[in-house]
């Protein structure tokens, strides 16, 4: 047990700071992905001239591996666009891009699942299109999308381990740093894997509870 104390417990500040960075980058990426996914989805559904562009982007983000995208954003974007200028930004932007493709499709399924009659009923009471979208379509679409949203967040957390490759000091990075100092990987890497597994397990369980509650409170019966 000496090793566990020396390599894991005594390094807890380093590991916790890494976990902090992991949480931060995942939340940023998640918010970015929701905004990006919503934009892509709305363009795909309602802006006819830009539709092919949106579809191409969605398919590109969905069909490229996250590691490849990370390298691409990290090495190519700064040269071409002059941005992102830090590894941290490159990390969350890449994570957000990938997930925005998936979320765009999730939102689209949610929106298309709203029965047409609901929209027509709202229109017949004289609601303007924007209000129909905000009050009738979006709440139901989000309800359908809730479980997939949580699922996508766990995917982001899993993928976020890769930002350590571009030296973002997340949990994986700090843990590998400890390995490189002491050359004793067993305890640190096992603890790191345990932390990630527990963290992701908790998120998906909490997400399940929340989406069950949402469905029971606001969902249609049956």
């Amino acid at each position: 047990m000496g090793n566990w104390e020396r390599l894991v417990w005594n390094q807890r500040e380093l590991l916790l700071s890494g976990l902090g960075v992991t949480i931060e980058i995942c939340l940023l990426a998640f918010v970015g992905a929701i905004i990006g996914g919503l934009l892509l989805c709305l363009v795909r559904l309602y802006v006819a001239p830009l539709r092919p562009v949106a579809i191409l982007l969605i398919e590109f983000f969905r069909a490229t591996p996250i590691f490849v995208q990370l390298m691409w954003v990290n090495y190519v974007w700064p040269e071409v666009l002059g941005w992102p200028n830090t590894f941290f930004t490159a990390g969350w932007v890449a994570l957000a891009l990938q997930s925005s493709g998936y979320l765009a499709e999730t939102f689209r399924t949610g929106i298309e699942a709203v029965p047409k009659g609901h929209r027509e009923a709202a229109a017949s009471t004289g609601m303007p299109q924007l209000l129909i979208f905000r009050r009738i379509v979006m709440p139901q679409a989000l309800l359908t999308a809730a479980p997939s949203l949580v699922n996508q967040f766990t995917v982001i957390v899993k993928s976020s381990t890769l930002v350590s490759v571009i030296t973002v000091p997340d949990l994986m990075f700090q843990s590998q740093k400890i390995v490189n100092i002491w050359y004793e990987p067993i305890e640190v890497l096992t603890a790191t894997a345990g932390i990630y597994i527990a963290f992701i397990f908790l998120i998906s369980q909490a997400g399940k509870l929340v989406s069950d509650w949402l469905r029971r409170t606001f969902g249609l019966q049956g």
Binding site: K158, S159, T161, M172, L189, T192, Y196, I197
Partner: peptide, 10 residues
Amino acid sequence: NAPDYVMLVW
């Protein structure tokens, strides 16, 4: 619930 990369390194 294990991330691919963590599992790979482990």
